[in-house]
Simulated scan of single mutants.
Amino acid sequence: MRPGGCRTVLLEPSERRTAQELVRDTLRRGILTGEISGGTRLVQAELAQQMQVSTTPVREALRSLSAEGLVRLDAHRGAVVRRLNQEELQDIYELRCILEPEALRRALPRITAQQLDEAAVIETRMQEERDPARWSDLNRQFHRVFIDAAGSARLTQMLEILQDSFAGYIVASIVQDDHRRDRANDQHQTLLQAMRDGDGERAAEIMLEHMRVTMAHIAKLEA
């Protein structure tokens, strides 16, 4: 999706979610998978028409996404998908370098065999997945297994926000360089083995290198 453009978004049917939740979740997924790119305008009236809802749930959904840092509410342009500048990207990277290794260290004595098996299943699916958006979604799920195992709701919340801010850029980096996905898959496999071996420091080192490579690709993309 070209930044600054508008797009058609299909609303997924559900009996258990409100209209506001449906709109929010549909837009969030589009942003996190890179389908709706940074700089895209989200016009309330157009979204309401496309999703066959009133403007009220759309407005509330956009406010919710703004609170998550995914959308910027502009008095003149309306809602715009946030596009991070180089300084913001660097800040997120540095925070993740502090928090993610710590999450792995905390997870190590708590993680269960079932959680490790879950991560292995996701990792196998990532090896087979060639669609960048679906791969990015699996990538978030893989990292989330270890974050959840750390047993800290506050840490989980902070890392979710940081990872979500990066998600669209990861998709773009894979589209630009398909080998990037293969290298990331190899690092995920090595990380999982370190966690199975109970080697927290090795896992933390792998995570730091994984993030360093990811940031280098994103920086090249934004240059």
Rank of each mutant, 00 (worst) to 15 (best):
T124G: 03
R125W: 04
Q86M: 10
D137W: 03
A103H: 14
V81A: 02
A194T: 09
H143K: 15
Q44V: 15
L42S: 13
T156V: 13
S136Y: 00
R110F: 00
D148P: 04
R29T: 10
L155H: 12
P132H: 01
P109E: 00
S173A: 09
R105G: 00
L192V: 11
Q189R: 15
E160H: 10
P13V: 00
Q49V: 02
M207Y: 00
R24S: 10
R140H: 04
G34V: 07
T190V: 12
L65M: 12
H143N: 14
A219I: 15
M195K: 09
P13R: 05
V71D: 13
L62E: 03
A150Y: 14
A48F: 10
E35C: 09
P57L: 02
V121N: 00
A184F: 00
E35R: 14
L104H: 10
E94D: 10
Q52S: 05
L62G: 09
D178S: 03
I174T: 01
G38L: 04
M1W: 02
Q20L: 02
I36T: 03
L162G: 09
V23Y: 06
G198F: 02
R154A: 15
E205Q: 11
R59V: 10
H188E: 06
A150T: 10
Q127N: 06
L99H: 14
R24D: 07
G34N: 09
F142A: 07
S54V: 07
T55M: 07
V43M: 10
E118K: 06
Q193M: 13
G34A: 04
E60S: 11
G4T: 08
D137P: 03
Q44S: 13
L192C: 09
G168E: 00
Q163N: 06
R29C: 02
R180G: 01
D131V: 05
A203R: 04
E123A: 07
I92W: 06
T26H: 05
Q193K: 13
L108G: 03
L99N: 08
L208M: 04
S37K: 11
E87T: 15
Q176E: 11
E102Q: 09
R2V: 03
D177F: 00
T112P: 03
R180D: 04
G30V: 15
M215T: 09
A219N: 12
G198I: 00
L155I: 14
Y93E: 15
R63A: 03
L47Y: 04
V23D: 01
A203F: 02
P109R: 03
L162Q: 07
V171A: 00
E60A: 13
R110Y: 00
L208C: 03
Q114P: 01
M126V: 08
Q163M: 04
Q157T: 14
L99C: 09
L95Y: 09
V80C: 08
G38E: 12
I218Y: 03
Q163W: 00
S152E: 15
A167E: 05
T124Q: 10
R183Y: 02
L22E: 09
Q49I: 01
G4L: 04
V81K: 06
E102G: 03
E46T: 14
D25I: 13
L191T: 12
T190Q: 14
Q49R: 10
E129D: 03
E60N: 12
L73V: 08
R83M: 07
L42Q: 12
S136I: 05
Q115A: 09
Y93C: 15
I170G: 01
